[in-house]
Design a protein around this nucleic acid. Structure first.
Length: 193
DNA sequence: GTTGCGATGCGCT
DNA sequence: GCGCATCGCAACA
């Protein structure tokens, strides 16, 4: 039975284990269908690449916390910190399916139910997550993460987009054939497991 | 389904 | 100043 111990460590191993986990804030709960890995201080795509700043301090803290940032002047995105304290590895929560509190989610977001949390900024909006939640401990709330009961078996992987000089490794993980996966930046699916 | 573009504020050089 | 781990909408296929 997977638990929190499985969600700390090497980000490329931990990230796929977050698929199927449930994030809850108040009445709304989202089952994760798509995530993306950010691998420590040597990852040129990471906010932590240029060292610790006020904004990214949570990434350098202990694992099991939520790292929330504000971007494009209007959107929030959230990550789960998975690296040991001092190692800024985190997993961006890119998409999910609202599995509880759908009425509350609909009040926050217009559009189809399928799109309520399909996209990192949409997911945050559906859950009502903003900068006030940066650094919260996901074991104690108010935002909580419940590990998946069993590992997802149909996991697909693909490259991140728009990065230079990044190692050739899979960075994005999603549940294959799940309707609640972002198609905004399509990637070539490749069976994993 | 896809592509193109504007919105909009903050962190960092 | 520039660029951003994005989104919604319009136009098109």
């Amino acid at each position: 039975m997977p638990g929190w111990a499985d969600l700390v460590g090497d980000v490329l191993e931990v990230a796929p284990r977050l698929l199927g986990a449930v994030v809850r804030h108040g009445d709304v709960a989202v089952r994760l269908t798509e995530v993306e890995a950010y691998d420590g201080p040597g990852d040129p795509g990471s906010h932590a690449f240029n060292g610790q700043t006020r904004r990214n301090a949570t990434m350098f803290g202990p694992p099991g916390r939520l790292y929330v940032y504000f971007t494009y002047g209007m959107h929030h995105c959230c990550n789960v910190v998975v690296g040991a304290e001092g190692t800024p590895s985190a997993v961006l929560l890119r998409a999910g399916e609202v599995v509880d509190g759908i009425d509350a989610a609909r009040e926050r977001r217009k559009g189809s139910d399928r799109d309520l949390a399909r996209g990192p900024a949409r997911l945050c909006e559906a859950l009502g997550i903003d900068l006030r939640h940066d650094g919260v401990d996901l074991r104690t709330g108010p935002v909580t993460l419940t590990p998946a009961a069993r590992a997802e078996t149909r996991v697909a992987t693909g490259p991140r987009v728009g990065l230079r000089g990044a190692p050739d490794r899979p960075w994005r993980f999603w549940i294959e054939d799940d309707r609640f996966v972002s198609t905004y930046r399509p990637a070539v699916a490749r069976p994993s497991r």
